[in-house]
Simulated scan of single mutants.
Amino acid sequence: MSLLDVAETKDTIQVRSHLQYNTPEHISPHNVHPSPLEQFHIWFNEARNAGVYEPESMALSTVAPSGIPSSRMVLFKQLDKRGFVFYTNYTSRKSKELDQNPNAALLFFWREISRQVRIVGKVEKLNKEESKEYFQSRPIGSQLGALASKQSTVIGENDLQERLERLRKVYGVDESTEVKPPLPDFWGGWRVIPRYRPSPSMSKPGADFHQ
């Protein structure tokens, strides 16, 4: 039974209540790390240890040349001092929009620990060697899926499966294969480099971290 009070008719859905969650603590300059990236490490590990389902899931927002934004869920794969990394098809809508407007926003939402983190910044493509290293670390099925998938395009009902079967034959792939398909030119990583803003309540730069 749903705990959400919803009124629904043929044409409308109206949410009349919300199962509110309680934030575990008030965020202040006294209980967060001076480095936003270090603070993210702390919160990400809290999310993992608390059993958050897919804590690496994040919403990526981009903006088309027309000024119209779009968002979709992607998987966070790496964080270092340079920024947040995810991988995708470079011919997809999100990549085309990032090519034209190299600004993006990320949003992590960890419902189980009543926390969300928002990141805004510039983007850059990873170099080919970084993308290749990650690509070849993926399961063979995921590698073939990246080769076969033409993101943001309309396909027939069986097109993707047929492409996968052709690729399996081309590379001689079976359950025990050691073959590593080449990194496709149209696939790789993006890095979102956070843009920090001065916080009036902190002596050091802060970032957009919100509960």
Rank of each mutant, 00 (worst) to 15 (best):
T62F: 09
Q20H: 13
G206E: 06
P34D: 09
K150E: 01
P182L: 02
R163Q: 06
P194F: 03
N49S: 02
R197D: 13
D5C: 09
D159H: 02
L107A: 02
G188F: 02
D208C: 11
S152R: 05
N89V: 01
S2F: 08
K10M: 12
S17Q: 11
S66K: 04
N31H: 13
P198M: 04
D11T: 14
Q14F: 08
R111M: 13
K81A: 05
W190C: 00
R93Q: 12
G188P: 15
P184Y: 02
D159Q: 06
W110T: 05
I13A: 08
R16E: 15
K150R: 07
L164R: 01
I27F: 14
R115S: 00
T62D: 05
K10I: 08
T62H: 04
S57V: 07
T177V: 11
S57I: 07
L107T: 08
R72H: 06
K150V: 01
M202P: 02
G206P: 05
D174P: 13
L75N: 01
E112Y: 14
N31C: 11
T9Q: 12
Q143E: 02
A148R: 01
V85S: 02
V154E: 11
M202Q: 12
E97K: 02
Y134S: 03
W190Y: 15
I27H: 07
L79C: 01
G83P: 00
L107N: 09
Y171M: 04
K122W: 07
R72Y: 05
R118W: 07
P198S: 09
T91H: 11
G121K: 05
E38K: 07
L126I: 06
P65I: 03
K125E: 01
S95L: 02
P200N: 10
Y90W: 05
P205S: 15
P205H: 11
R115N: 04
L19I: 13
N89P: 14
E56Q: 15
H26E: 15
R93L: 08
G145S: 08
R48L: 13
P198V: 08
W110K: 03
E133D: 10
M202A: 15
K96C: 08
K122I: 06
T153M: 06
R111V: 14
N31T: 07
V173F: 04
Q39W: 09
A50S: 10
I13C: 12
M202D: 11
S114Y: 11
F40N: 01
A105E: 12
Q100P: 14
G67C: 05
Q39R: 10
Q211S: 14
Y87W: 07
R118Y: 06
H33C: 12
P102S: 10
T23R: 13
M1H: 03
W190K: 05
K125L: 02
Q161R: 13
Y134Q: 01
K10G: 09
A148W: 00
E178H: 13
L183W: 10
E178S: 11
S203N: 13
T23Y: 15
D11I: 07
Y21M: 09
A148V: 04
S114D: 14
D185R: 07
L79V: 05
V6I: 15
S201R: 09
N127K: 13
H26N: 14
K96I: 07
L19Q: 15
L98F: 08
Q100C: 10
V52M: 06
S35A: 11
L79N: 00
D99V: 09
S149E: 01
Y90D: 00
N22Q: 15
E56M: 12
